[in-house]
């Protein structure tokens, strides 16, 4: 029996459980391969912290389909954020660019939630300082809407209509206890 979305004790609602996430990532992996006509020239860059394990999982699926290990890295965008000055100085997260670099490659940015689009803008600026990819694409597990910039995702696990007061939380085994996407709303 598949587990179905069910309410949690603190008013949070599970919108994707572990099996939904597996299916979404598998579909995204196939879509990336289809769009790119294979795994050549692909580089997956996860945005820390939860974009990184997502990028690794997509790479594992691509490897099992194509038999080719796509380079995976991480790209911290902290210093490129437009709200850097509005909050206390923040710790940097890990950036690791695969050995082959990104020049002339098709870079797929991977993040957990697409919201205002400001993180992705920062990521595009960060990429600019690292090299010149042939193309940049965006894969996200959840698109919750409310864009503040002209940015859209190429590969989406789930489109999740939300209101601005709701909070979308992605947990991933490895960083957190288990895989889940939950939405926490206002008290009804």
């Amino acid at each position: 029996m598949p587990t179905h979305p069910q309410p949690e004790s603190d008013g949070a609602r599970v919108v994707l459980d572990d099996r939904d996430i597996v299916r979404a990532l598998t579909r995204i992996s196939h879509e990336i391969l289809e769009r790119n006509k294979g795994a050549d020239d692909l580089v997956l860059l996860g945005i820390p912290s939860r974009g990184v394990p997502l990028a690794q999982r997509i790479a594992e699926r691509i490897a099992s389909v194509e038999g080719y290990d796509v380079p995976v890295g991480s790209l911290d965008v902290t210093m490129y954020r437009d709200d850097l000055r509005l909050k206390p100085a923040r710790a940097l997260l890990h950036t690791e660019i695969p050995a082959g670099g990104i020049d002339g490659k098709v870079v797929v940015l991977v993040d957990d939630v697409l919201f205002s689009g400001r993180t992705i803008r920062a990521a595009l600026d960060a990429l600019n300082d690292i090299g010149r990819p042939k193309a940049v694409r965006l894969a996200v597990l959840v698109d919750r809407g409310h864009r503040e910039l002209p940015i859209r995702a190429d590969f989406v696990g789930k489109n999740l209509p939300t209101s601005l007061v709701e909070r979308v939380k992605v947990t991933l085994a490895g960083i957190d206890d288990a895989d889940a996407v939950t939405i926490q709303g206002v008290v009804q």
Binding site: M79, Y80, A91, L92, T95, E96, D129, I130
Partner: peptide
């Protein structure tokens, strides 16, 4: 430890073609 871990990230900049950050 925060300074040291931040420095570790800053250190990787030395290997990049553009040694510049906008912070």
């Amino acid at each position: 430890e925060l300074v040291l871990s931040t420095a570790e990230e800053m250190r990787s900049l030395a290997d990049r073609p553009i040694k510049k950050l906008p912070a």
